[in-house]
Lab assay of single mutants.
Amino acid sequence: KELVLALYDYQEKSPREVTMKKGDILTLLNSTNKDWWKVEVNGRQGAVPAAYVKKL
């Protein structure tokens, strides 16, 4: 499985998103959308802005 690093804090704004903190390591589930990537963090799945994460 592919991992990404959170470059910034992000507070979810809808139920389809997830909150992450700078430095979090997230499991990347889907990166086909260039703006929003689906990730899993702390057992929750949701979208985060692609510009806020970097593939490891």
Rank of each mutant, 00 (worst) to 15 (best):
L29P: 00
K1S: 11
K1F: 13
K38I: 15
P15R: 09
V39D: 01
W36F: 08
W37Q: 01
D24G: 03
K38Y: 15
K1H: 13
T27I: 15
G46D: 00
G46T: 04
A50M: 05
K22F: 05
T27Q: 10
V48G: 00
Y52K: 07
K21Q: 09
L28H: 00
L56I: 14
N42G: 12
L5M: 14
A50S: 13
S31Q: 12
D9S: 09
Y8T: 08
T32W: 10
R44C: 07
P15D: 13
W37F: 08
T19D: 03
E2Y: 13
R16T: 13
T19S: 15
L28W: 01
Y10T: 01
G43C: 07
K13I: 07
L56H: 05
L26M: 14
D9Q: 03
V18K: 01
K34G: 10
A47T: 14
D35Q: 12
L29G: 00
K54P: 02
E40I: 09
V39W: 01
L29H: 05
K21S: 09
L26R: 01
P49F: 05
G46H: 04
A50C: 08
R16C: 15
T32Q: 12
V39H: 01
N30E: 15
L3P: 03
L7F: 03
K22S: 07
E2D: 11
V41F: 15
M20P: 00
S14I: 04
A50Y: 04
P15L: 10
V53S: 00
L26I: 08
I25V: 11
Q45E: 12
R44G: 03
P49T: 02
G23E: 01
V39S: 01
N30M: 08
K21W: 09
T27D: 04
I25H: 04
R44L: 07
K13N: 11
W36S: 03
N33Y: 08
E17W: 05
K13F: 06
P15A: 12
V48P: 00
V41C: 11
D35C: 14
E17N: 06
L5K: 07
P49W: 04
E17D: 05
L7N: 02
E17P: 06
E2Q: 14
T27M: 12
D9A: 07
R16V: 11
S31V: 08
Y8V: 11
K21V: 09
L26K: 01
R44I: 08
E12S: 15
A51Q: 11
N33R: 10
N30C: 14
V4L: 12
K55Y: 10
K1D: 09
D24T: 08
A50Q: 05
P49S: 02
I25R: 05
G46V: 09
P49C: 06
L3V: 09
S31L: 05
V41D: 03
E2N: 11
M20V: 10
Q11T: 14
D24V: 04
K1M: 13
S31P: 07
D24L: 05
N42V: 05
G46P: 01
W37D: 00
G43A: 04
K54Y: 10
A6S: 05
K13H: 09
L28D: 00
S31T: 11
L56D: 00
V18N: 04
S31C: 13
L3T: 09
K55Q: 09
S14T: 12
A6T: 03
G43W: 04
L28T: 00
L3H: 09
D9F: 05
N33D: 14
S14P: 05
V48R: 01
V18M: 12
I25K: 04
K21M: 09
T32M: 12
K55V: 13
K22N: 03
W36C: 07
E17L: 06
E17H: 07
W36H: 03
K13D: 06
Y52D: 02
V18S: 01
L5R: 09
L29Y: 05
G46C: 07
W36K: 02
A51H: 12
L56P: 02
E17S: 07
G46Y: 10
Y52N: 05
G43F: 05
D9T: 06
W36Y: 08
L3F: 15
Y10D: 00
Y10N: 00
Y52Q: 04
E2I: 15
A51G: 12
R16K: 13
K1C: 15
S31Y: 09
Y52A: 11
T27F: 13
K13T: 13
A6V: 10
K55L: 14
Q45C: 13
E17V: 06
P49Q: 02
K22E: 07
L5W: 08
S14L: 07
M20E: 01
E40A: 09
Q11G: 07
E2G: 11
A6K: 01
K21I: 08
T32H: 11
E12N: 08
A50L: 02
W37R: 00
V41E: 02
S31I: 09
L56Y: 10
S14G: 12
V53C: 14
M20I: 14
V18G: 02
A47R: 15
V53W: 02
A51D: 10
P49K: 04
Q11N: 13
Q45A: 12
K22D: 01
D9H: 06
Q11H: 13
E40V: 08
K34L: 10
N33T: 07
L5E: 11
L28S: 01
G43V: 02
V48I: 09
E12I: 07
Q11D: 14
A51F: 09
G23P: 00
K21E: 06
V41W: 09
V18A: 05
A51M: 11
A50N: 03
A51S: 13
L26Y: 11
R44Y: 06
K34D: 12
A51P: 08
D9M: 04
K34W: 08
Q11C: 13
G46S: 03
V18H: 03
Y10M: 01
E40S: 09
N42C: 12
A47Q: 14
V4Q: 01
L7A: 03
S31W: 09
N33C: 11
Q11L: 13
V48H: 00
N30T: 08
E17Q: 11
V39E: 00
N30V: 09
